[in-house]
Amino acid sequence: MRAEPLKAGPLKAEPVMGAGFDPAFVPGITGPTPTDGVTKSPEPKGAEEPPSSERASSEPRSPEPESSEPASPERVDADEADAEDKADGPVFEASDRRARIVADRKGVRLSLDEEACEFRWDEIAAVETESPRFGKRYTITVHTPDRRWYPIEIEAAARARFKEWDEQLDAVLDAYFEEA
């Protein structure tokens, strides 16, 4: 008996979406990445200069004069509120070239590259920290009451930062986090 080779045809399988294939995928927070080859522009649309009919000169352009209008009252109030938030109580902030975590009286905010999520204190069931035995990646995991967890890793400049970060985060958790 002789076996015939199998004929290879086109595959019609759906792509598997998830964190195993897309590290930026967070269920419930981000949608699936487009598969049609569309890429995001790193510059905002308003960043392009419209072509001008003026002659190009070798002199550097002078900066535009700033408007003499005073800042709007809403903007001033927002700036004052931000200053009050930072001065109101303990704040924990850690970041590296990709990731950032901020914990203050409003809650915990995590960001990785362009993705970000925010948790109010009433949305958090637990905050867990882990420092590796070797290496410099400090892990903070935010657990929610619906049994989801959101870890983020921050690369420290030195392992000595782990103890400092633990103390700062404990101060914030003691001040704002209330266990039910």
Score class of each variant (00 low, 15 high):
162 F>L: 10
4 E>N: 12
178 E>T: 15
105 R>Q: 13
44 P>W: 07
110 L>C: 06
13 A>G: 04
139 T>I: 12
53 S>W: 01
54 E>Q: 12
6 L>M: 13
13 A>H: 08
167 E>Y: 00
69 E>L: 15
114 E>M: 11
159 R>H: 02
128 E>G: 08
177 F>N: 01
43 E>M: 13
33 T>P: 13
123 E>R: 11
104 D>V: 03
18 G>C: 09
169 L>H: 02
86 K>A: 12
19 A>P: 10
16 V>I: 15
174 D>A: 15
94 A>C: 12
5 P>L: 09
139 T>H: 05
160 A>H: 04
51 P>H: 00
44 P>L: 09
15 P>H: 03
55 R>Y: 10
173 L>T: 01
67 S>F: 05
164 E>D: 11
57 S>Y: 00
50 P>K: 13
15 P>L: 07
75 R>Q: 13
122 D>L: 03
28 G>L: 06
19 A>S: 14
12 K>E: 11
150 Y>W: 08
136 K>G: 01
67 S>H: 06
99 A>C: 14
17 M>D: 07
36 D>P: 02
122 D>A: 11
17 M>V: 14
101 I>G: 07
3 A>I: 11
46 G>F: 15
95 S>G: 05
129 T>N: 06
7 K>D: 07
137 R>Q: 09
22 D>I: 07
138 Y>D: 09
102 V>N: 05
